[in-house]
Amino acid sequence: MGILILFWATATVAVASAIAMLFMRNAVHSALMLIVNFFCIAVFFLMLGSQFLFVVQIIVYAGAIMVLFLFVIMLLGVDPQERLRERIPGQRWVALLLGAGLVAEIVVAVRLGLGLSSGHAARLAALNRGGNVRALAGVLFNRYFFPFEVTSVLLIVAAVGVVLLGRRQAGDASARSGASSGATGTGPAQVMPGPGSEPGGDLERVP
């Protein structure tokens, strides 16, 4: 009985915080609502017998990724009024309609496909008996060892790409406002061909 109450309370908070995230005008408030939602999903992971993902969800998502979001919001500044004029007329209502259709479709599909069963939950409980982390490591480092290593390549590629994208280049608005060459910095400003040869080519000229 207790787990049912926990489920319904968590589900209510999760959906409510997601809807609140959608309707918040301020980007910081949206981020905070999203953190609440991530915590709810972490509770769902715990209820589904996945203690490792519960902890990782809180550390990686609610911790690292959302702090990254908040840093970027801080960097860009918050513009409180989003323009409400629509490029495509009636886009908002069509989006809501299609969303309602998607929910109805998934609910019908799940009803027809699964019904009210909790499947082989006992088998998972037996697997988790020595600890969920140990069981997960047994799968991850045997059968999925190669994808695990490829993941590290992905992370390195992402890090290098971000360093390239985030580099301040000559021709930026901020670099142009200072002295045209040399005064802005040491390395990257001199690598580029010439200040002001192409005004404002940041995205086009990724080397």
């Binding site: 589904l48 909790s118 069981a135």
Partner: peptide
């Protein structure tokens, strides 16, 4: 994962 009783 819980439905099918494995960790994949």
């Amino acid at each position: 994962s819980r439905q099918w009783g494995n960790l994949v």
